[in-house]
């Protein structure tokens, strides 16, 4: 794993929601192949930061680069950049009018212009990888939350992205299905995917993360490797937060 190439660079990003400062001068570098976990209380700006990385959220000032392309520049073809950034949502957001296979196929055919045969081949391989091959003809409403989320991961992976963003991927799941989604994410980490994960799953952070970031009030308060982070945080605020959730 090379730690030299910067995959994502965030420079002095500020974002307001009305009077509320959602991101307060945030700067951050994420390296190729790195697994970054962002934690923090709700409303701390972690989801906003993640969503700003593929311009689902616009920012007021500062600069964001993904793989060299400036995300928050009107000149940038955002659709081209988004092809390289996979995103997994808290609420899965599968397309309910399409079967599992069609969900994974759609963007491949529409955006990547792959033929149906080629797309289906890729989709089947990915559905196998997330352990849900047997459901390919089902509609999302027939699947459990964990199954839906695994399909959503396969759908994002089908675009062959360079980065995967996870926005609280297990927060809407029943406890017994969280594990199956985390397992898929761990496998993905082993494959060397660059991953940024907003989560409350501290076990996952401890096991998978190269680096953990703690955000509060729109700013990065503390960062470090998980062993340091969970055992000996330097900030009082971090310690309080960890005490609450652990």
């Amino acid at each position: 794993m090379s730690k030299n190439n910067v995959m994502i660079r965030v420079q002095n990003v500020v974002k307001h929601f009305g009077a509320l400062k959602a991101l307060d001068n945030v700067s951050l570098d994420v390296y190729d192949g790195e697994k970054l976990v962002i934690i923090g209380p709700s409303g701390s700006g972690k989801s906003t930061l993640l969503r700003a990385l593929n311009r689902l959220e616009t920012v007021d000032s500062g600069r964001i680069f993904v793989d060299g392309a400036q995300i928050n520049d009107q000149q940038t073809d955002i659709n081209k950049v988004r092809e390289e950034i996979g995103m997994v949502f808290q609420s899965f957001n599968l397309f309910p009018h399409k079967t599992v296979l069609e969900n994974v196929n759609l963007a491949q055919m529409v955006v990547r212009k792959r033929s149906r045969r080629e797309a289906t081949e890729i989709s089947r391989a990915l559905l196998k990888k997330v352990f849900i091959s047997e459901k390919e003809d089902q509609y999302p409403s027939k699947l459990s939350g964990g199954q839906q989320q695994r399909v959503a991961i396969a759908r994002a992976l089908a675009m062959k992205p360079k980065v995967m963003l996870f926005d609280e991927p297990t927060s809407a799941l029943d406890p017994e299905t969280i594990g199956e989604v985390l397992d898929v994410m761990k496998n993905l980490a082993l494959d060397g995917m660059t991953m940024i994960v907003v989560t409350h799953e501290m076990g996952f952070a401890r096991e998978v993360a190269d680096r953990v970031i703690f955000m509060d009030c729109g700013a990065i308060l503390e960062e470090g490797p998980p062993e340091h982070f969970f055992t000996n945080p330097s900030q009082e605020r971090t310690r309080l937060f960890l005490n609450q959730i652990l």
């Binding site: 950034i85 955006v111 994002a156 675009m159």
Partner: peptide, 27 residues
Amino acid sequence: IHKGQREAARSLGMTSVQTMRYVILPQ
């Protein structure tokens, strides 16, 4: 249609027209 549908489609690199045609309007 829930805004998550639009976001999912756009995050996959679909244009707003493609999103409308393949994701929003059919629903």
